Simulated scan of single mutants.
Amino acid sequence: MKTILCYGDSLTWGYDARRLGRHAYEDRWPSVLQARLGGEALVIAEGLNGRTTIFDDYASGADRNGARTLPTLLSTHAPLDLVIIMLGTNDLKPGICGRAHGAKQGMERLVRMVRGHDYPFPQPAPKVLIVAPPPVCETENSDFASMFEGAVEESRKLAGYYRQVAETCGCRFFDAGQVARTDPTDGVHLDAVNTRAIGEGLVAGVRATLGL
């Protein structure tokens, strides 16, 4: 059985903007991916609300810097066959980074960390699949509109930048914006239908990557 680590933020955790809670387990995209792969793979969901690629968020009560947390998780869940990374939306907050190019640099660093990690025993480094999150949309939620000021435009650049990173690093790439749309309730998160769509959309690429 193959082992897949899904490393992400609230879109991976399954935040539900309409209920201000969490989507049902079976609706979260890593769960959908697990179900569609059947007994051929174990899918581990490691999502944290507010997580960035490489940037600090001092307003949060947990460490949101993805570059600091990733090495621990790579060792915790080893051996791994595939790491799926979907991050970057939180990088676009003006108080964090505010630019898609910064998220691109962060994503490239995370990929290199997966490749060069000191794993607990000799093993090939897991393959990496980079996922560009769906672009942020306009919202009447004033808190989120302020928190993600400028992110509607910047988020549309992520897919192109991440494709470049995938080509440079020799990774597989998936644009979640091709199958899912963010919920205008807050402009950032996904409803149940759209988070499920990401899990469904990843199946073919994951199978191809792992030879399933």
Score class of each variant (00 low, 15 high):
residue 69 T to H: 06
residue 82 L to A: 05
residue 110 L to Y: 15
residue 152 V to P: 09
residue 129 L to M: 15
residue 110 L to M: 12
residue 97 C to A: 13
residue 157 K to H: 07
residue 63 D to Q: 02
residue 67 A to K: 08
residue 129 L to F: 08
residue 131 V to Q: 10
residue 89 T to W: 05
residue 80 L to C: 06
residue 94 P to Q: 10
residue 167 E to F: 01
residue 154 E to C: 07
residue 90 N to Q: 06
residue 113 M to F: 02
residue 93 K to G: 01
residue 87 L to Y: 04
residue 85 I to D: 14
residue 118 D to P: 03
residue 175 D to G: 01
residue 109 R to E: 14
residue 95 G to N: 13
residue 67 A to V: 08
residue 172 R to Q: 11
residue 82 L to S: 03
residue 76 T to G: 01
residue 158 L to Y: 04
residue 121 F to G: 12
residue 113 M to C: 02
residue 95 G to E: 14
residue 165 V to D: 11
residue 149 E to R: 06
residue 105 Q to C: 09
residue 72 T to L: 04
residue 80 L to V: 04
residue 156 R to G: 15
residue 153 E to D: 05
residue 141 N to D: 07
residue 151 A to C: 04
residue 122 P to N: 12
residue 162 Y to N: 11
residue 99 R to C: 07
residue 153 E to K: 02
residue 136 V to T: 12
residue 163 R to M: 10
residue 64 R to W: 00
residue 53 T to E: 12
residue 166 A to R: 11
residue 112 R to W: 07
residue 144 F to Y: 14
residue 164 Q to P: 00
residue 78 A to E: 11
residue 151 A to M: 03
residue 81 D to E: 11
residue 118 D to R: 13
residue 151 A to L: 00
residue 67 A to N: 10
residue 143 D to C: 03
residue 175 D to L: 05
residue 171 C to N: 10
residue 163 R to L: 12
residue 164 Q to C: 02
residue 169 C to D: 15
residue 174 F to W: 08
residue 111 V to R: 15
residue 163 R to P: 02
residue 141 N to Q: 04
residue 53 T to H: 06
residue 104 K to Q: 14
residue 128 V to P: 08
residue 147 M to L: 05
residue 75 S to G: 11
residue 57 D to S: 05
residue 160 G to Y: 09
residue 177 G to V: 05
residue 80 L to R: 09
residue 97 C to H: 11
residue 53 T to S: 12
residue 105 Q to F: 00
residue 168 T to K: 15
residue 94 P to V: 02
residue 55 F to M: 14
residue 66 G to Q: 08
residue 96 I to V: 15
residue 152 V to L: 08
residue 133 P to V: 01
residue 144 F to Q: 04
residue 122 P to M: 10
residue 114 V to W: 10
residue 59 A to N: 12
residue 76 T to F: 03
residue 83 V to R: 04
residue 112 R to D: 15
residue 71 P to R: 07
residue 169 C to K: 06
residue 70 L to R: 11
residue 100 A to K: 10
residue 80 L to P: 05
residue 113 M to R: 10
residue 88 G to D: 10
residue 134 P to K: 09
residue 83 V to I: 05
residue 109 R to I: 02
residue 132 A to S: 15
residue 174 F to Y: 14
residue 166 A to T: 13
residue 131 V to E: 09
residue 83 V to T: 06
residue 91 D to R: 11
residue 65 N to H: 05
residue 68 R to I: 01
residue 124 P to W: 03
residue 167 E to V: 07
residue 161 Y to M: 13
residue 140 E to Q: 07
residue 112 R to M: 08
residue 55 F to S: 14
residue 122 P to Q: 13
residue 125 A to Y: 08
residue 107 M to Q: 12
residue 90 N to M: 05
residue 152 V to C: 06
residue 104 K to P: 00
residue 80 L to H: 02
